[in-house]
């Protein structure tokens, strides 16, 4: 466990010193500031759109951060050849995969928490309110979803360069959000090969829409039942474990390229 935590700490230090996440924070602050400054006919207390857009961008930025952080770790270790002195220590490849994932996930979740704080702060500043229990549930599920996103990206990056891994991860995540959830509707008009393909996507991709409580938070629909929260969280954890297992299987026998720095 100490080795895993040590490796995850290195990810943290890298992200804090790389300044990527500051760019995202600044972007979000700028966006929220723009939304705040909009004059909606001089009417006060109009905040739902701020919460909605703010949380949407919190999701987008969290995904960008998660994919860019997780997708960079293993390919960078190989390209910079820092993997050699690392594996020369009593560190297994499973430690490396787990440590990189844990670091990527925890920093993504921490930044997501910051994003949420910013959005809530702006909403409160504008005289609105947010149901705390629903928000907490939304954040927890968002964190689990980021676990899936980072684990997926790490798994892909065991066999691809950073650019390719990030691209594939973005495509799969976009597919999970936009297509997988709508397959039952699409299947009404499809059959044969296309229908089978859609069904494969439906059962093969993680259902990330289950982790998105934004509409409940923004429109104040209240918390979801604990049983549902637990089910969705466990579903997410199972996906994370599965993807990390895939990552380990892809990495454990990998022969690293020698030669010029990539």
């Amino acid at each position: 466990m100490m080795r895993v935590l040590t490796l995850s700490r290195v990810v943290w230090l890298e992200m804090i010193r790389r300044k990527d996440l500051y760019v995202l924070l600044i972007l979000l602050v700028t966006l929220l500031f723009v939304l705040l400054s909009l004059n909606i006919f001089g009417l006060g207390g109009v905040v739902r759109y701020v919460a909605d857009v703010g949380l949407l961008f919190a999701w987008l930025f969290a995904i960008i951060l998660g994919v860019s952080t997780a997708g960079r770790q293993l390919p960078q270790e190989e390209a910079k050849r820092t993997i050699y002195p690392l594996l020369a220590k009593p560190v297994t490849r499973a430690d490396v995969v787990l440590g990189k994932w844990l670091g990527s996930w925890t920093i993504t979740v921490s930044c997501t928490a910051l994003f949420y704080l910013l959005v809530v702060g702006v909403v409160l500043l504008r005289g609105g309110g947010i149901q705390p229990v629903t928000l907490a549930q939304g954040f927890v599920l968002h964190a689990v979803a980021m676990g899936i996103v980072t684990a997926l990206t790490v798994a892909i990056s065991t066999r691809m360069t950073y650019g390719a891994a990030a691209s594939v991860a973005y495509i799969l995540i976009a597919g999970a959000f936009s297509i997988a959830s709508r397959v039952p509707e699409l299947l009404v008009h499809e059959e044969g090969f296309v229908a089978r393909g859609l069904l494969a996507l439906y059962y093969g991709l993680p259902h990330l829409e289950l982790f998105d409580l934004r509409q409940r938070i923004v429109h104040e629909w209240g918390a979801i039942p604990c049983r549902t929260l637990l089910f969705v969280a466990m579903y997410g954890v199972v996906w994370v474990l599965f993807l990390l297992l895939l990552a380990w299987m892809g990495y454990r026998r990998k022969r690293f390229k020698r030669g010029a720095l990539g």
Binding site: S181, L187, V188, H207, E209, L210, V218, H219
Partner: peptide, 26 residues
């Protein structure tokens, strides 16, 4: 409509994911 979107026709409804989503979405 307070965040409630249009309900569209679906080819099947007996999936565990659909049932979970019905509880989650407004």
């Amino acid at each position: 409509h307070q965040g409630v979107g249009y309900v569209r026709q679906q080819a099947f409804t007996n999936s565990v994911f659909i049932r979970a989503y019905e509880v989650i979405r407004p």
